[in-house]
Design a protein around this nucleic acid. Sequence first.
DNA 1: ATTGAAAGAACCAGTTT
DNA 2: AAACTGGTTCTTTCAAT
Lengths: 152, 152
Amino acid sequence: MVRIDDTDRKILIELQEDASRSLDEIAKAVGSSKTPVWNRIRKLREAGVIGPQTVRLDADALGFEACFFVLIRTSEHEAAWQRRFLAALKARPEVQEAHRLAGDIDYILKVRVRNARAYDAFYQALISEVKVHNVTALLSMEEIKSTTALPL
Amino acid sequence: MVRIDDTDRKILIELQEDASRSLDEIAKAVGSSKTPVWNRIRKLREAGVIGPQTVRLDADALGFEACFFVLIRTSEHEAAWQRRFLAALKARPEVQEAHRLAGDIDYILKVRVRNARAYDAFYQALISEVKVHNVTALLSMEEIKSTTALPL
DNA sequence: ATTGAAAGAACCAGTTT
DNA sequence: AAACTGGTTCTTTCAAT
């Protein structure tokens, strides 16, 4: 865990919100000036705190109208099985999130696809690659909120 | 839904991957040149296909070590209740995702906090604001994958 | 931490295919 | 209608104070 002071925090908040602004604008927003802000950003990047810069695309506008949360229970817990399972998830671009869980349910996925048929294709492909015990798919009707911003 | 041609798709793929690169580099990557790419990006932005530009921060490095998926069942289905519930979710920065679901479970949340205590504080605050019937929290042990990139 | 300056990128108009 | 050219303006980057 990296030590971050108040100015760093402000810079990160600004960048999370809109990374397209110029150094000058960000410096003004955090109450500092160009060079010190630039040096801090460089350090935060080197430390890996600031990762890649991306654009957020409108999923609906691009025809990705279906979003599923998939709860997975498995009976297999060997290292080899897990390795294959993780590799399969990482390789599939429709899997936007994958977490290994504590407790009853072993994994949760967030899967973004064009429609229900595309989800089924994904599901069939996945279960043919690796054996899973029980799968529950939750279909999103409405995306109330979606952000990657941390509550700094 | 917006009509997108092959060049637009390539541009979006590049921007999703790394939006910090210069127009020239993106143009080269998609096999075109600066001006046409610039015009296309402008149009995609105006159409809302390209949204805000953000940086991805390292949650662990910043001390956000706990991530919960929260499954919520409610007995209330009136408009007024729902309005209050949605407003509460939108207002809470630790809620990174919130979806209204089809079926048995009514809502799913992704909640990112510093530790289990912070989750409990969030949970207590939420249920004191709005009445919910049943809440299950799934604790993430390992983030296998996390991206906002669409499978273009 | 500020200034300032050189290199580079974005943006836009005019022109061409 | 779409792509190239070139030039103005804004940014980034970094050295010197």
